[in-house]
Design a protein around this nucleic acid. Structure first.
Length: 230
DNA sequence: GCGACAG
DNA sequence: ATCTTGTCGC
């Protein structure tokens, strides 16, 4: 399974969900859940998308680490080629994410993606797909859960509780800001859950979502507004 | 069979 | 995700 094969399947197999499940299983087998990146890292990235009907706007932000200074931002516009189907999100948003990343001058050392990593029924969410396909350390950060259970609410800002799915600890339910709902963090590839939480924790500024994802969201929506004006 | 279900 | 303004409150 490589990038080209994934893109072809996402383009052609949007009704053969059984085939896509097999792809997810293949990706899941390749996920490395260990910290596997050079330290100290220099750059952290974030990607997010906005939609106008069948047009998808995907933004990529690259910030320095740990100061979180903006050094690069890219935004691409493309057509959606796969419907939104819960648990098959990687086949919808994966292709534009791969495209915006390939337009960047440099790759971040670690990439955050507005989706899940292993917090997924097949243990292979969109963040894991991107990580495995590009051999890139990735972290999934989402606002809602797909599966899994947790014992309690995180008690205070900066706290998290483990999310268990099929007896495995697949994510963290993390309270990033006061007066807001906790977020869901899960390793995508080449990182542990604990380290993933640390990177998210240290990139929270003044918003519920970590800065790379907050900025990517802003940029995608700004581009969207500009497109609607014309 | 029904419901739940990232963006 | 998206349709959408102001407004109440920490």
């Amino acid at each position: 399974m490589n990038r080209e094969e994934f893109l072809r399947i996402a383009r052609e197999s949007n009704k053969d969900l059984g085939k896509l499940r097999v792809i997810q299983e293949k990706i899941a087998k390749k996920i490395i859940l260990k910290d596997d990146f050079p330290t100290p890292i220099k750059y952290i990235g974030g990607v997010d998308s906005a939609y106008i009907d069948d047009i998808v706007i995907t933004a990529c932000i690259i910030l320095t680490w740990p100061k979180l200074e903006l050094i690069n931002q890219k935004c691409i516009i493309s057509e959606t080629k796969f419907p939104y189907l819960s648990t098959f999100f990687a086949f919808r948003e994966g292709p534009p994410i791969l495209e915006v990343l390939s337009s960047c001058e440099r790759m971040p050392d670690i990439l955050m993606i507005n989706s899940h990593g292993i917090l997924h029924p097949i243990f292979a969410g969109c963040a894991s797909h991107i990580g495995v396909l590009l051999n890139l350390p990735t972290i999934g950060v989402a606002q809602n859960a797909l599966c899994g259970e947790w014992e309690s609410e995180p008690a205070s800002v900066g706290e998290w509780v483990p999310i268990i799915y099929q007896n495995k600890m697949v994510g963290a339910y993390y309270l990033s800001q006061k007066e807001s709902k906790p977020i869901f963090i899960s390793p995508g590839h080449r990182i542990t859950l604990e380290t993933a939480v640390e990177f998210v924790k240290n990139s929270i500024k003044n918003h519920r979502m970590p800065e790379p994802l907050y900025l990517a969201h802003q940029q995608a929506n700004e581009k969207k507004r500009n497109l609607i004006k014309k």
